[in-house]
Structure formats: structure tokens, C-alpha cells
Amino acid sequence: MIERLWAKLGKSSLQPGEPIAPHNVPEHVAIIMDGNGRWAKDRGLPRMAGHHSGMKAVKRITIAADRLGVKYLTLYAFSTENWKRPKAEVDFLMKLPQQFLEIELDELIANNVQVRMMGHKEDLPSYTISAVEEAIVKTADNTGLVLNFALNYGSRMEMLEAVKEIATEVKRGQLAIEDIDEKVMADRLLTSGLPDPDLLIRTSGELRLSNFMMWQLAYSELWFTDVYWPEFTEEHFHEAIKEYQRRARRYGGL
């Protein structure tokens, strides 16, 4: 049973040499970057070493997505639940955006990448926010790949905040109940202005969404791999894209 489920959700039967069809590349790819700690543990390294290596994978996959013509890449960098981790690890994770952008921002600008962030800024350290906001401002006019970091993000909180906003507008007479539809809801989510992901990738072998974009992923194709994020390569990314291209997206139709 589990083997059949695994095959359906992610294990590709494609031949390695099969080309990627340029006309059917997903517009928006979202990735749950999982397995940094386990990757490090398997090598006798501290968990922080896994997170640092995971940062290199971010660059690798950003380049791969851009080359293929993906327009939006959303990376789950830190969830609202990750605050439960040991303080030393959280502190390290909060410094990674600053380190990544200090090293890579000039190259992102040169490659016309636009940096965005979705999440709840109020709980983040000032140095994390400053680094991200600087990147957002400096890349605002870029028209290439949108690199969207989900940082201190949780889908349940996102939806609750959207519902509260809608309720407030109804209470003030700014919105009629009968006018509430999917677009009204979507416009109040943190992904407002972005298309829903066509493809979700999750590394490390876990088969769950972990409170990530639960509204937006309603009709996304899901692809899972047991490869840990630090060792996720351009070839693995291509494998996911090829599997996506094999599937028929019917959206409930025939």
C-alpha cells in the first residue's frame, strides 16, 4: 500500500535522459526544504552544519529554476512552529538569510531575480528583517524569477488573519457577505498577487504539508523524495519537473 502511494506521489519512472518539455514548465514551484539536521547527523556533524549546507542548495536550485523558465520559486525557510526548536538552532537559522543575501545578493541582482518574503515579520530579529528588506528593495524592479522566502510562515495563521480581515470589512460595511468568494479570500492571503503553486516538492522522505500553503496547494502536484535538502541537486529538481510533465491536471474535470 505505502509503496503504491509513494510511487504515485513522487517516485519517478522516467528515464534519466528524457528531456524537459520547455512548453510545460511549472510557473510556480514551492519547496519544503527538509532534512538538513538528519543530513548532518548522518555525517557526525552538528545540525547547524546541515543548515549551512542547505543554504548552498538554495542557490543551486534557484539557478536551476531560473534556467528552466520557472517564474516563481517559493522556499519554506522557517515555519511558525520552528520556534519550538532549541534557542541556539533558532538563532543560527535567523542569521542564515543575512548570510545568504550578503553573499548572493549581487548575483541575484545581476541575474534579474526579484526577492520577496511572506510571513509574520513582527517576531523576527531586526537583523533578519533588515537583510531581507534590503534585498526586496534592491531587487524590486527586477523582472525575472521571483524568489519568495516563506519566513516565520504558517498557513493556519495566514488563513485566520485573512478571515479576521474579511470579518472586519463586513463589520464596517466595506464588504457584503454575499460577495465573499475564493478571490476575496486569496487576495487577503500572504501570497496575494502570486499564482498558486503548480508543483510542491518536499525533500527528506516526509509525506506531509507541515502547515505550508494549505489553501494555495489545493490543486498543486505533489512530489516527494527521500533525498535530504543539502544533497538536492539540479538533477533531482529536473526529475521532479519531468514527473510533473507526465501528469494530467484536470482540476476536478475529465
Rank of each mutant, 00 (worst) to 15 (best):
V58K: 00
A218G: 05
E89Q: 09
H28C: 07
N112K: 06
E221H: 09
K164R: 14
L207D: 03
E18F: 09
E243G: 05
N142R: 05
M185Q: 02
D141A: 12
N24E: 14
E178T: 08
T143V: 13
T203A: 08
R208A: 09
N36R: 09
E81H: 06
L108K: 00
N142P: 05
E89G: 05
L101N: 00
L194R: 02
Q114F: 00
L14S: 13
R208M: 09
T139D: 03
T62L: 04
V163L: 11
K71H: 02
G144T: 14
L175K: 06
E133R: 06
E243K: 10
I166V: 14
A167G: 08
I109H: 00
G252S: 09
N36W: 11
D226N: 14
Y228R: 13
A57D: 01
F232I: 11
E221P: 04
D187M: 12
I129T: 02
I166K: 07
K164T: 06
E122W: 15
M118N: 06
R246C: 12
G119F: 08
N36Y: 11
S155Q: 06
M117C: 15
A49W: 03
A167N: 08
L124F: 10
P22D: 07
E104I: 00
K138C: 02
L175Q: 13
E221M: 13
A135Q: 01
E27N: 01
T203E: 06
F232H: 06
V29W: 03
I103D: 01
L9V: 14
D198I: 11
L189N: 06
E182A: 15
V137Q: 03
E3A: 15
F224V: 13
G173N: 02
H238N: 13
T143N: 09
T233P: 04
T139C: 04
E235I: 13
V25G: 01
